[in-house]
Simulated assay, not measured.
Amino acid sequence: MLHQTVKNYSVISHIADSNLVARGDSASPKEVIFHILQDNKIDTEVLDIGFGGGNLGEMIRRNPDTSHWSVDGIDGFLPNCHNQNLFGKKLYRNVWHGLAQSMPSDMFSKYKIICLLDVIEHLTLDTARWLLRTLLTGMGEDSYLFISTPLWFYPQGNIQSGDLEEHLIGVPASSMMALMPYMYAVNAPLVGGFVLGKRSLDFIEFFHPTTDKNFSYERGMAVTQAVGMQCTSGHLYKL
């Protein structure tokens, strides 16, 4: 179930005191967001799933070419949705507390870009497959899904109670490239960012994450090289 805490840039829900700290950032190549559209000057609505500390929203809104974009966020960790300091900056138009899988599927169609940055590896295998299919199905015909994930089983556990930080799956590069991305970039340590379109639905059956914690960085790199991906940090590759 979703609970809205910010509406039209204003906090509409009680902000609870907590010893838990708002947190969550992505090692993904977030700058790819500025290269997805042919014209960044058009009015654009963005959904930031698992917005964490709000770094993506701030990056978008601080860039003069995209400062007019409207960014909405959803996060399953309550302190992130009660981050008064973040909301005071008026970066996120609407914010919901809850899981993306609780969002009505028809909501996805309103967004030009849906961002799922370093989120899918925190889900179970079945939920990850379901969510990816749901996002691709629900988004508009001319919309984009910007997804990032470590291309190996990056070991990470929870830091705070309920923070959803534990990694449950690893995603091989072969799974992501089989989805026919329009572009990709890779940051250290082997974290790939991929831009998908509606056409990826035709290849969704090839998305095969693994629960094998022995899927190491070295094995992930071997798969990445085998499928011909380039791994130079800071470079964007268009396909």
Rank of each mutant, 00 (worst) to 15 (best):
P64Y: 00
Y182N: 13
K110I: 01
I33L: 02
R199T: 14
L131F: 00
V6T: 09
N19E: 10
W96A: 05
N19L: 12
M221H: 14
M221P: 09
P104C: 08
N94I: 00
F203G: 03
K30V: 03
G98E: 08
F34H: 08
L86I: 06
I60W: 07
P79I: 10
Q160M: 07
F215D: 05
T66I: 02
A27T: 01
A27L: 07
T211F: 09
S102G: 08
G98K: 01
V11S: 14
G24E: 04
R93F: 11
F207M: 11
S233I: 04
M139N: 05
Q160C: 08
L136Y: 11
V186P: 11
F51W: 05
G197S: 07
L196F: 15
E166R: 15
M139A: 07
K198W: 08
S105I: 12
G234C: 00
G220V: 05
G24K: 02
L145Y: 11
D25S: 15
K41W: 06
Y111I: 01
D118L: 08
L145W: 13
D142L: 04
S28C: 04
F153T: 02
P172I: 00
C115S: 13
G228C: 06
K30H: 04
E45K: 14
F51D: 00
V21D: 14
D39H: 06
K213G: 05
C115R: 09
L78P: 06
T5L: 11
E141I: 12
L131M: 09
V71A: 00
D106A: 06
K89M: 12
Q160P: 08
N187S: 14
R129P: 05
G54D: 02
G170W: 02
W69M: 04
L135V: 10
G140S: 13
C81N: 08
L135M: 00
M107Y: 12
N63H: 15
L236R: 10
K41A: 13
M107F: 14
N55F: 11
L145D: 06
I147C: 09
V46C: 07
D163Q: 10
T5Y: 06
A128N: 01
A128D: 01
A226C: 09
F194S: 04
D39M: 00
H122G: 03
V227F: 10
Q84I: 07
V11L: 09
T66A: 03
V227D: 12
A173Y: 02
R129A: 07
S70H: 15
N40Q: 00
D142Q: 15
D202L: 14
V119R: 05
G140H: 09
A185D: 02
Q4G: 08
A222D: 11
G53K: 14
T127H: 07
T66C: 00
G138L: 02
N85M: 10
L164R: 10
T137N: 12
Y237E: 07
A173I: 02
P104Q: 01
Q84F: 09
D126G: 04
E141F: 12
H235M: 06
Q230M: 14
E141K: 15
A16N: 15
N187F: 02
R133C: 13
